[in-house]
Amino acid sequence: MFYHTKKLQYFRPPEKPDAIYAKKIQELIGGVFGEMTVMMQYLFQGWNCRGPAKYRDMLLDIGTEEIGHVEMLATMIAHLLDKAPIKLQEDGAKDPVVGAVMGGSNTQNVITDIMGAAMNPQHAIVSGLGALPADSVGFPWNGRFIVASGNLLADFRSNLHAESQGRLQAVRMYEMSNDPGVKDTLSFMIARDTMHQNQWEAAIEDLKESGLESTPVPSSFPLELEKREFAYQFWNNSEGTESSEGRWAKGPSPDGKGEFQYVENPQPLGPEPLPPQSDPRLHGTPLNKQAQGSADTLINRTTIGG
C-alpha cells in the first residue's frame, strides 16, 4: 500500500515564471537519468528482491522517496509555467521568428537556432501548463530506461551510476538558473543525490561483506568455465600506450582473483570469417557462379518453408 502525504518533502517556489526553464526541468523528471527512472528502477528492484529483507526495505524506502521528488519537480514546473501563454503573447513582437518574417529572413534557420530557447508547446497544448512524463526535448519517458535484473550487486552498481548522472544533471540545472527559489529547491535535491550515491556505495560494500555477491557479477557462475587466461588482460586496441599507466594495467585485480597484464600488441585469436551461404530462396548475392548454379537447382526442387 502506498500512502500519500499532501506536504512536499521540500519546496521553495520560484520567484518568477520561466517557461523556458520549465522545459529544461523536464529532463530531471522524464530524462534517462531523471527522477521517474530512479523511482521506477528502485521500486521494481525492491518488488523483485528475493534477498535479505533489509535490501528490499531499503529499495522500497528510496523508491518511494523518489516519487516525492517527481512531485516536487512537477510542482516547480507548474509555478514556472504560471501565466506563460499571456507572457508569450506580450513578448510576441520580440520573437525572433516574427522578426525574421517581418524582415524577410530565412525563418527555418532562425527556428533551428532557437529551438532550445523556446517554450515547450506541449506544456500549453497537452498538459495545460503542467509537467509531462517526458524529457527536455519532448521524448516520452520509457520503461526501458530502468534496470532491475534480480542480481543486487549488478543493480546497486547501476543505481550508483544513475545517481551520479542524476546529480550531475541537477548541478548543471542549478548553474543555469538565477532564481533563488529554483536554486534552493535544487540544492535540497542535490544533497539527497549526495546521500544516495553514498548509500549505494555502502550497500555495495554491505552486500559484498555479507558474502552473497562479489566481483565479477554474477559471482555464482563457476570461474573455471571462463577462459581464465584472458580474464585479467588489458588489450591496447588503439594507438599509443598511455593506458599502460593506469591501475587497470598492472598489479592485483580488485576482485583479488587475478593479476592484471598489459598486452601492448593484441593479436587476433580467431580466423578470418567466412560467412555461410544464405538460403538461395532468399535471393542473396552468392559467393560465386557455382554457388548460384546450385541455388537455381535447389529453387527448382523446393519452395521456401517446404
Score class of each variant (00 low, 15 high):
124 A>D: 13
94 K>D: 14
85 P>G: 05
119 M>N: 09
147 V>L: 10
112 T>F: 13
109 N>W: 08
89 Q>E: 14
128 G>D: 11
121 P>H: 02
155 D>I: 04
93 A>I: 10
77 I>R: 03
141 W>L: 07
91 D>Q: 14
100 A>V: 09
153 L>R: 07
121 P>N: 05
78 A>R: 14
80 L>H: 06
132 L>Y: 03
138 G>E: 05
93 A>T: 09
135 D>C: 04
119 M>H: 09
85 P>K: 05
80 L>W: 07
98 V>A: 12
96 P>R: 01
118 A>L: 12
150 G>F: 02
139 F>N: 09
158 S>K: 10
95 D>Q: 02
85 P>Y: 01
111 I>H: 00
132 L>P: 03
77 I>N: 02
90 E>S: 05
81 L>A: 04
111 I>W: 00
102 M>I: 09
83 K>G: 11
112 T>A: 15
99 G>C: 03
114 I>T: 09
125 I>K: 08
139 F>H: 12
127 S>C: 04
103 G>M: 02
151 N>S: 07
135 D>M: 03
116 G>C: 02
98 V>H: 10
151 N>E: 11
93 A>H: 11
142 N>Q: 09
95 D>H: 09
89 Q>I: 15
131 A>K: 03
145 F>W: 08
86 I>M: 13
75 T>W: 03
93 A>K: 13
145 F>T: 11
156 F>I: 00
134 A>W: 04
114 I>F: 10
102 M>P: 01
157 R>S: 07
131 A>L: 06
99 G>V: 03
142 N>P: 00
78 A>W: 13
143 G>M: 11
94 K>I: 01
137 V>P: 00
160 L>W: 07
140 P>Y: 11
91 D>N: 14
73 L>S: 02
137 V>N: 11
109 N>F: 12
99 G>F: 07
111 I>T: 05
152 L>G: 00
130 G>V: 00
126 V>K: 13
